Simulated scan of single mutants.
Amino acid sequence: MALPKLKRVLLKLSGEVLMGTQQGGIDPAFVMELAQEVKAAKDTGLEICLVIGGGNIFRGVAGAAQGMDRAQADYMGMLATVMNALAMQNALEQIGVQTRVQSAIQMDTVCEPVIRRRAERHLEKGRVVIFAAGVGAPYFTTDSGAALRAAEMKCDALLKGTSVDGVYDSDPKRNAAAVRFDTVTYDRVLADNLKVMDASAVALCRDNQIPIVVFSIREQGNLARVLAGEGVQTIVQGS
Rank of each mutant, 00 (worst) to 15 (best):
K173H: 09
G67C: 12
G67M: 12
L148H: 10
G67T: 09
L11D: 03
S200C: 12
V167C: 04
Q66P: 09
A177I: 12
A65P: 15
A29T: 08
R174Q: 13
A85F: 10
S163C: 15
F140H: 08
R121N: 07
Q94P: 07
V232C: 08
L227I: 04
V9Q: 05
G161C: 12
L10Q: 01
I105T: 03
V114F: 07
L10P: 00
A132V: 02
L227T: 05
G45E: 04
T183M: 06
K125R: 10
A228K: 06
V110K: 04
Q209Y: 04
I95P: 15
N56S: 08
M107P: 01
E16Q: 10
N208F: 13
L34Q: 04
Q89S: 11
I210S: 04
M78H: 05
Q23A: 14
Q106L: 15
S216Y: 15
D43S: 12
R149F: 11
G24W: 09
D169W: 01
N208C: 11
A147K: 03
P211W: 01
G145A: 10
V129L: 13
N175A: 06
D192G: 03
L92T: 09
G20K: 05
D187L: 14
V167T: 10
L10A: 02
E112L: 13
V38L: 06
T44H: 09
K39V: 09
A80D: 00
L50H: 01
I57E: 10
Y75L: 06
G126H: 07
V164E: 00
C155W: 02
M19L: 15
R117A: 07
D169H: 02
A228P: 04
Y168C: 02
V129P: 13
V214F: 04
P113S: 14
A157C: 09
E219Q: 15
G67Y: 14
D182Q: 10
A191N: 03
Q233M: 09
Y168F: 14
P28Q: 01
I210V: 07
E33Q: 15
D74N: 05
N90R: 11
D182H: 09
D27G: 07
V129D: 13
D108Q: 14
V236H: 01
R100I: 03
D171W: 06
L46Q: 01
C111R: 05
T142L: 01
M83D: 08
V17G: 12
